[in-house]
Amino acid sequence: MNWNSISRKCVAVRVRTLLAGAALTLLAGAAVAQDCTPKISDTLLTTAGTLTMATSPTLPPMAFADQNGELKGLRIDIGKEIAKRLCLKPEFVSTEYATMIPGLNGGRWDLVNAGLFVTPERRKILMMIPYENLAISISTAIKSDKAVTKLDDLAGKSISTDIGGYDEKKMRELNEDFKKRGLPEMKISLFDNYATVYQALRAGQVDAAASIDPVAKEYQDRGEFSHALTGLYPTPGSLAFINKDVAEAVSGAMKAMKADGTFDKLMSQYGVLPAPGDLSVLPP
C-alpha cells in the first residue's frame, strides 16, 4: 500500500469543540481544557491530545458535508461526544472505505468511524464496538420502468454498490443464488462511495443501487429515488480499532453515553436503531 497515495485521497477536517466552558486552542497538544485529563495516553494516539477518526462523509444522514463543507450526521455527532468524554479533540479524516483498514493498520488514524459491518473476516483483524443496527436497501429511479418489489426482481438487472463492502459481498452472494436457480445474474458496478453509487443510478447507468437503510431513506425523503426494498441482511455496524487500550477507552465513553441517555437520544434523532449488545469491545 502506498501511503502517499492514501494521503492524497484523504482530506483532514478539523472540528473545534468547547469543553467545560474553555475554548480549545489551535495549538497541537493543547486540545482540552486544563481541568479535563485525557483518558488515552498521547503515546497511543496518532496525534497528541486528538482522537483521529476515519470516516466517509458520503452517507446522509450518517455522515455528510453540508454546503459549507462542515461535517454533519450521526457518526460525526457520536465521534464528537466520545472525544469530549475522553478529553480529546475530535479530528475526522475523510477517506474511501478501501483505505480505512490499511490506514488504521498504518497508524494514520486511531479508529474507523464509518459503520463498518461486523463480519467474521473483519473480526479476525480488528477490535470492534457494534452500535448501529444496519441493513441493506435497494433504491430505484422514481419513475423506473423496471419495478423491484422483491429480491428476485433484481435478476438480470444492473446494480451499483460500494467496492469491498458488505453490500458488494451480499450482492455477489445473491448472484450465486440466482445462478443456482437458473435466473440471470445481475451486472454489478462498483464505486468508491455511496455518493457515486447513487450518481450512477441518477445518470441511468444502472437499474438499482444497493446501500444501507438510513441512506436509502434519506434519498427517498429528498424525493430523489424510490426505497424499493429495505431491511435486507441486517447486521451491526461498528467502530473499529487496532489498539485494545484505545478501543476500551472508547467503549467506556459510549457506555457512559448510554447510561445518561445521550446515546439513545442521538440514535433516535437520526432514526437509527441501536445494535444488540452493551457497547463492549468484540475482540479479534
Rank of each mutant, 00 (worst) to 15 (best):
S5Q: 15
R8E: 13
V15M: 13
R16P: 06
A22S: 15
A22R: 13
L24A: 13
T25F: 15
A30I: 15
A31M: 10
V32D: 08
D35E: 14
T37P: 15
K39T: 09
I40N: 10
S41I: 01
D42F: 08
L45D: 04
T50L: 05
L59I: 10
P60N: 14
P61D: 12
M62L: 15
A65C: 10
K72T: 05
L74T: 01
R75D: 01
R85H: 03
E91C: 09
E91F: 02
S94P: 00
T95V: 08
M100T: 09
P102E: 05
N105I: 00
W109M: 01
W109H: 01
W109E: 00
V112I: 09
P120S: 11
E121S: 09
M127L: 14
P130E: 05
S139D: 04
T140Q: 06
K143N: 12
K150H: 14
G156F: 05
K157E: 09
D162M: 08
G164I: 04
G165E: 09
K169I: 07
R172T: 14
L174Y: 01
N175A: 08
E176V: 08
D177V: 15
K179Q: 15
K179D: 12
K187F: 06
S189N: 08
S189R: 02
L190I: 03
A200D: 05
D207L: 05
A208W: 00
V215I: 14
A216L: 03
K217P: 00
Q220S: 06
R222L: 13
E224A: 03
F225Q: 01
S226K: 12
L229S: 10
L232K: 03
Y233K: 08
L239P: 00
A247P: 00
V250G: 08
M254W: 02
K255S: 12
M257Y: 09
G261V: 11
G261Y: 07
K265I: 03
S268K: 15
Y270A: 07
L273I: 12
P274W: 02
V281N: 05
V281L: 03
